[in-house]
Structures are given as structure tokens and as C-alpha cells.
Computed example of a mutant assay.
Amino acid sequence: MSEKITIYFEGKPVTVDAGVTVAVAVLEHSHSHNEGNYTSINPVSGERRGPNCLMGVCFECMVTIDGVPNQQSCLIVARDGMKVERQTHMQETL
């Protein structure tokens, strides 16, 4: 039996296996709750985008994590208490 952690996705608690990436956690939660498997919205077309390559090449899985925008969810391991939000547009980082 795997250790479980809780992240907060769009403000809702989500329990996932320790060691999974944020992308996997979001996809599992979205699929099981029929919320649509996407992590961001394309700022130009308005199209919903989600993890595609799962190895950091395509940048389709961008999310905001703990208030920091433009995070590649497929490269970041989920940690207990993490706050994850879908990203609706690209944000500038300082």
C-alpha cells in the first residue's frame, strides 16, 4: 500500500499517491470527477490544454503552484499541502 498525500487542486483537497507528478494527480482527479482533463487554457485560442508529452518538452501542462505561475506539472512531484491552480493565461515571472 502506497503512502498518500493531499494536494489542493482548484481549492479542493485531492488525495494521491506520494511520488506522483502534479500532472498525474490533476489528470487522475479530473478524470474521476468529470472535470475535464486539462491544466491550462491557451491564451490565444481559448482551447483547453493538458499534459501531452509528460517529459517537459511540450509545455502544455502549465499550472500555478503555491502562487508561482508557469510551472510544468509533468516535471514536479506533488507534495503534501501543495496548492495547484489551472492556468488560464501565461503570466510573466520576475
Score class of each variant (00 low, 15 high):
T15P: 02
N42L: 02
N37S: 14
G36A: 09
E92Q: 09
V77M: 13
V22P: 10
I41D: 04
V20R: 04
E92M: 09
E60K: 08
I41R: 14
E3C: 01
L54V: 03
I65Q: 02
C58L: 12
V44Y: 10
T21Y: 01
A23N: 09
E10H: 00
K12F: 06
G46Q: 04
H89Y: 10
N42P: 05
Y38E: 07
E47F: 05
T93G: 10
N42F: 02
M90H: 13
T15C: 05
C58D: 11
C58G: 12
V68P: 01
L27V: 13
F9R: 05
K83M: 08
V77T: 15
E35T: 07
E47S: 10
L75S: 09
G46N: 07
Q87M: 12
L27K: 15
I7V: 15
A25V: 01
K83E: 15
L27D: 14
C58W: 12
Q87V: 08
P69M: 08
E47G: 00
V68S: 11
V20E: 10
Q72W: 04
G11W: 06
P13Y: 02
G50T: 08
V77D: 03
M1A: 13
T88R: 14
I76D: 01
A18S: 13
M1T: 09
T6E: 14
T93R: 13
T6F: 00
S30W: 02
S30K: 13
P13T: 06
L27M: 14
P69N: 07
T15R: 14
V14T: 05
S73I: 03
A23T: 08
C74F: 08
H33K: 14
E85K: 13
V44R: 11
P43R: 00
I76R: 12
S2C: 05
E28G: 11
F59T: 11
E47P: 00
K83W: 02
P13A: 04
C74W: 06
M90R: 12
M55Q: 13
G11D: 10
D66I: 04
H31N: 12
Q71K: 13
V68Q: 12
